[in-house]
């Protein structure tokens, strides 16, 4: 087990290093003198020289990279050019919104996806299978930003059940918070739910025809017990893997969802940074997003090596 995890950890660290290089190089590739951007109104040669000195822009590119990384590791991501406040503070402030959104949509995707997948696999050829399959196809083909607009049209404007925009922290007013977060969570989770549904269905169909399920039935377990504790459990490895692979989409989707529902999360921070040319912010946000993504992928691998012992004992992942 340790060998496998160490190998994955090493790979993740290498990827993280490459990501930091790409982010660093990318921001330096932006046309224009960074000193000019930082200077604002004061553009005399002396002021520019002072800024270059202050921000270490005269140092070699390696020294600059090293400073960027060593500061980033301690949580210092520089100062936003737009607000003049530390980037890490803005990120910490936006994080709860995006994390709540992501968790709620994961919950939606897992509950709806696994539920519909099991139904589609167990009730083959009945109307409920067709319904589940149709919904999954729709979930895959409807872009989530349009789904968001349609849901706002129907459930926030035509029949005002939910709020269309804005954010209230859960700690301040849990009911109002959920009233505002339900639609975004559905929008963000729908595509994922469709993928989870298809995978669950395929994996369930495989396990239901496996020998051990027939054995379990033959020794007198009820159909419900067999489906729940044998077939479903063995299908979960696939589902966890798929969830891991789809997390990048979840992160991309969060950016759009937050834009539609005007939620002050990570995605809004990212888009605002682009349009206001706030490079320190952009650099920090992209670095954090990618690091989080790498970390989550690592955790997914760890999770399924725990669920399925064959992975950590067999050496090579399937």
């Amino acid at each position: 087990m340790n060998h496998y995890l160490l190998k994955r950890l090493r790979q993740s660290l290498i990827t993280l290093f490459l990501v930091s290089v790409v982010v660093f190089a990318g921001v330096r590739a932006i046309p224009g003198d960074p000193a000019l951007a930082l200077a604002g109104e004061e553009r005399s040669p002396e002021a520019l020289a002072a800024i270059r000195e202050q921000y270490g822009l005269n140092d070699s590119i390696f020294e600059q990279y090293w400073r960027f990384v060593s500061h980033a590791v301690t949580g210092d991501l520089g100062v936003s050019a737009r607000t003049g406040l530390p980037v890490d503070d803005a990120i910490v402030g936006a994080l709860p919104v995006t994390v709540e959104l992501a968790l709620l949509s994961l919950l939606f995707a897992v509950v709806v996806g696994i539920g519909a997948g099991v139904i589609a696999a167990v009730r083959r050829g009945r109307p409920s299978e067709w319904l589940a399959n149709g919904l999954a196809l729709l979930g895959l083909s409807v872009p989530n930003f349009w789904l968001g607009i349609v849901l706002v049209l129907s459930l926030a404007i035509a029949v005002p059940v939910f709020a269309a925009s804005g954010y209230v922290p859960f700690g301040v007013d849990p009911v109002d918070n959920l009233r505002r977060m339900v639609l975004p969570a559905i929008v963000l989770g729908s595509g994922l739910a469709a993928v989870v549904m298809r995978q669950t269905r395929a994996a369930m169909l495989d396990s239901l025809s496996a020998d051990y399920v027939r054995t379990a039935r033959a020794k007198g377990l009820s159909r419900r017990q067999v489906i729940g504790s044998h077939a479903l459990r063995n299908s979960l490895v696939t589902v966890v893997t798929i969830l891991g692979l789809q997390l990048g989409q979840l992160i991309s989707g969060a950016v759009v969802t937050e834009q539609i529902f005007v939620l002050p999360g990570f995605g809004k921070l990212t888009i605002d940074a682009v349009f206001t040319r706030d490079y320190a912010m952009l650099q920090g946000v992209v670095l954090c997003t990618s690091a989080a993504y790498i970390l989550i992928n690592l955790l997914v691998d760890v999770a399924y090596s725990v669920i399925d012992p064959r992975i950590r004992l067999g050496g090579a992942p399937r």
């Binding site: 990048g248 989409q249 759009v256 990212t270 682009v274 952009l282 992209v286 997003t289 990618s290």
Partner: peptide, 22 residues
């Protein structure tokens, strides 16, 4: 493989946003 993984570490939208910025 490392190149592929590095590319995968940037979610699509983050990549697009970065390119739009540059």
């Amino acid at each position: 493989s490392r190149i592929t993984e590095t590319m995968l570490a940037f979610p699509f939208l983050v990549l697009a946003v970065g390119l739009a910025a540059i």
